[in-house]
Design a protein around this nucleic acid. Structure first.
Length: 423
RNA sequence: GGAGAAGUGGCAGAGCUGGUUUAAUGCACUAGUCUUGAAAACUAGCGUACUCGAAAGGGUACCGGGGGUUCGAAUCCCUCCUUCUCCGCCA
């Protein structure tokens, strides 16, 4: 959520940003600015009435003490009259605040100046291409869902039997591979200075609100009605919320955290070839990195995250490229997002495995995540990225590392974790 | 799940028979005095948010959350949440 003060002072900049996102209706900006003016005027009036009635009430107290009952009663009726106006103004205030928030919730973040123009993923900029030739597999190479069947690594059918479509069940070396990847990623992240967090996998409404899943995106989350809890769509939600409603000191920075969690997405999406196998599922495993930074450091932090994720993919020996998302594809809350895609040699397409974003103050405004800058409090910047998402990494590993005789090589870096070299 | 107790500023902790409470006091913290330096002592400051004001400086709201009673609520009432103690159940 943008700050109303920011919109007021930088209206042109906001409009420019919205244009980059291919939006053309800016009427709500003027509307929200006007509503805020009205809110201020209303508050000033309200506070005046409140001050007056506080004053009189004090006098009443004094008069009672002195035994001047009648004088007190006269004042009482006076206050009672003013009270009605106070009630009225209070209602107006909450009504205006609600309206303002409703509009602010609909305004996306202003994209960073480096975000390229564009309307869809077609227009994303290749920020860093794969510098080598893409691997080629023989004609007999198989997609990961066939390899998984051959080696009994996971079963979508059993997952369906037990839960429903989109809930894979891993077994044997497939299950071990999951566990190995999670441990490998967490170790890589903690070695780079990220603190390991193991958060709850269900979150309450305030938490879901803090990172912007609510309102609006409740359809994406599984919801436990009986206890009013949501299943995590990503570890970003609980981990970032650690710092909800906090005022940090400058020396608390940088804050670097990593967490493994399963991720649950209801995702009423498309079906077909592109979502076969592990490409898109309701439950998948992911290791996330989250950072809270001083504004002046957040873009350096973003670069650091980028190199960190790139380093992990290098160790896994997977061909990848980095995209800078265009205005039409960058998510609602993000100012700048880089996507990592690995090349699936068997499916002959790129698979997104990580998304690294700087939200600037868009999330922290909602979270009330501040730091003390001298005497004032300022909003901190929040960033997060996958490091990394498992299901598609597994898909890529299986496909790219298959041998002509139908087996699968485990990358060296992963072997200490799997404790086997071949599947 | 049952019974009881409690939630106050960064922490500890008073207030809780409704009205000079502007939330005492201590610790911590910040600045100053003193000191070669530090400690101690002393002095002052010390919450968040909104708002008025050029500024100085005001105003309002907030004592777990929400609602209510009252001219006036940290204090009374309702409700929800959380924590602690005991019992039950349980990996």
């Amino acid at each position: 959520m943008l700050q109303i003060g920011f919109i007021k002072e930088n209206k042109e900049k906001v409009i420019e940003g919205l244009k980059k996102r291919n939006l053309s209706d800016f009427a709500n900006l003027d509307e929200v600015i006007q509503l805020d003016e009205k809110r201020k005027a209303t508050q000033t009036e309200l506070n005046t009435f409140q001050a007056e009635s506080n004053q009189i009430s004090k006098e009443i107290g004094m008069l009672y003490k002195q035994g001047k009952r009648e004088e007190a009663d006269v004042l009482k009726t006076k206050v009672t009259q003013g009270k009605e106006r106070v009630k009225e103004l209070e209602n107006q205030m909450s009504d205006l605040s609600q309206k303002i928030e409703n509009i602010l919730l609909q305004i996306p973040n202003v994209p960073h100046s480096s975000v390229p123009p564009g309307t869809s993923e077609e227009d994303n900029e290749v920020f860093r291409a794969w510098p080598h030739a893409l691997p080629e597999l023989s004609e007999t190479a198989k997609p990961h869902w066939e390899l998984a069947k051959d080696h009994n690594l996971f079963s979508l059918e059993l997952g369906t039997k037990i839960a429903g479509a989109g809930f894979p069940l891993y077994r044997g070396k497939g299950a071990k591979l999951q566990r190995a990847l999670i441990a490998f990623f967490l170790d890589e992240n903690t070695e780079a200075g990220y603190e390991e967090i193991l958060p709850p996998h269900l979150v309450n409404e305030a938490t879901a609100r803090g990172t912007g899943q609510l309102p609006d995106k409740e359809g994406q989350m599984y919801y436990v009605t009986k206890d009013d809890l949501y299943l995590l769509p990503t570890a970003e939600v609980p981990v970032t919320n650690i710092y909800r409603d906090e005022i940090l000191k400058e020396e608390d920075f940088p804050i670097m955290m990593t967490a493994y969690t399963p991720c649950f997405r209801r995702e009423a999406g498309s079906y077909g070839a592109h979502v076969r196998g592990l490409n898109r599922v309701h439950q998948f495993d992911k290791v996330e990195i989250v950072r809270v930074e001083l504004p002046e450091n957040s873009y350096a932090a973003l670069d650091g995250m980028l190199e960190h994720v790139a380093g992990i993919l290098d160790k896994l020996e997977l061909p990848y490229r980095i995209l800078r998302l265009c205005g039409g594809d960058v998510s609602f809350a993000s100012a700048l997002t880089y996507d990592f895609e690995i090349w699936s040699a068997a499916q002959k397409r790129w698979l997104e495995v990580s998304s690294v974003s700087n939200f600037e103050t868009f999330q922290s405004n909602r979270l009330k995540l501040r730091y003390r800058d001298g005497k004032k409090t300022e909003l901190a910047h929040t960033l997060n990225g996958s490091s990394l998402a498992l299901a598609r990494i597994v898909a890529g590993l299986l496909e790219n590392n298959q041998t002509p005789d139908g087996r699968i090589k485990i990358p060296k870096a992963l072997q200490p974790y799997t404790r086997f070299e071949m599947i």
